[in-house]
Amino acid sequence: MTNLSARNNILAKLKRQVAGTDYNNLPKESGFDYPKLSHQQQLEQFVAHLQNNHAQVIKTSRAQIAEVVGRELKSLNIDKLLYGKNSQYSEEIEALPTADMKCRVILQPFDFVVEGEAKQNLFDNTPAAITGSHSAIAATGTIVLWPTVDEPRTLSLVPPVHFVIVDANQLYADFTTLINEQQWHNKMPTNILLISGPSKTADIQQTLAYGAHGPKKLVVLLLDC
């Protein structure tokens, strides 16, 4: 197997160079001490970054999720929403069709495996999706998703409009703080996703365009702020 010999050759070459290195005397790595912000300031920072990156942020409450989403869907002329059954906010989302509104929304649970016809349908006939989120980062205006069985990876990727619910109590100052406070080291899931705006590109003459391959529109429902 060339593979195994390639492995051993590469490692042997590298090991020869660093054999006997004293790893106890490496230079100290100190990071920059960022100014400590209050929760309110962090929230402002979070919202400002997201808006700067073309996301729409709506401050609301858990009780109003259905109403807000219904209103936004109506203004976007969308009558279909993909969501995760048994997910964190599924009860609130399921109140959507019966909410006191004039629009009619067809709720579609993500109860299929992404293959064959279901996959094609996901790509072609799913105008919008809604997910919860795991946490958020103030310093960069970032929403952290830990996709689950109920809210799979493609739910926040394939539909052109993504509604995401963020709990303001899950806001962390920065990425380092988040990793350490939640001890990510011992519990990495299949996939973690940091999202900081709608999909975009500046590949054509440095002109920003939104909706390159991921969602064109990111609507953030910020709860309890």
């Binding site: 970032t142 990495m188 996939n191 999909s199």
Partner: peptide, 21 residues
Amino acid sequence: QAISTYFNMITRPRQPGEKDG
């Protein structure tokens, strides 16, 4: 950019019960 639009951390292939990946 303060951060890219997406930062994708992949630790496993699709696990039993997962619907995509």
